[in-house]
């Protein structure tokens, strides 16, 4: 856990798993029983909702029908470490989690910032 200020408003706590065999990681974190929220810290997974993959939107007025269909329908369905939107229901916090969809483990969580737009 490290402290950082995001957007000059709120002190956010971003979570990053250090290594695969980190003995200090709570095993419930690696089994998706708990989720580290950047604002509220580690909370039970039941308090969160999945918001889908993080995907940049192409410009609708410039993209062809096929490109737009690709954005609307197609997904990277294979397992891997994915960037996703998650929502802490109790506090109304949207944030980004990097999650391994094969092992069901959180790799990182952090608040969205303008730099993420280009990723």
């Amino acid at each position: 856990m490290k402290q950082s200020a995001v957007g000059g408003q709120q002190a956010a706590v971003s979570y990053e798993r250090r290594t695969d065999d980190d003995p200090f990681v709570d095993p419930r974190l690696t089994k998706m029983k708990l989720m580290p929220c950047p604002i509220n810290g580690i909370r039970p997974i039941q308090e969160f909702a999945y918001g889908g993959p993080f995907r940049p939107m192409p410009n609708p007025s410039e993209s062809s029908d096929k490109e737009w269909a690709d954005y609307v329908f197609h997904r990277a369905g294979e397992p891997g470490i994915k960037r996703e939107w998650w929502y802490h229901i109790a506090s109304g916090t949207w944030f980004i989690a990097e999650r391994d969809t094969l092992k069901d483990e959180i790799v990182r969580t952090y608040l969205y910032s303008e730099e993420d737009r280009s990723l």
Partner: peptide
């Protein structure tokens, strides 16, 4: 397991598992 197979060919699909 379809996305893992279509990935081998670079075929885009809407499948989410």
């Amino acid at each position: 397991y379809t996305p893992r197979i279509t990935q081998l060919l670079g075929i885009r699909t809407p499948l989410v598992v």
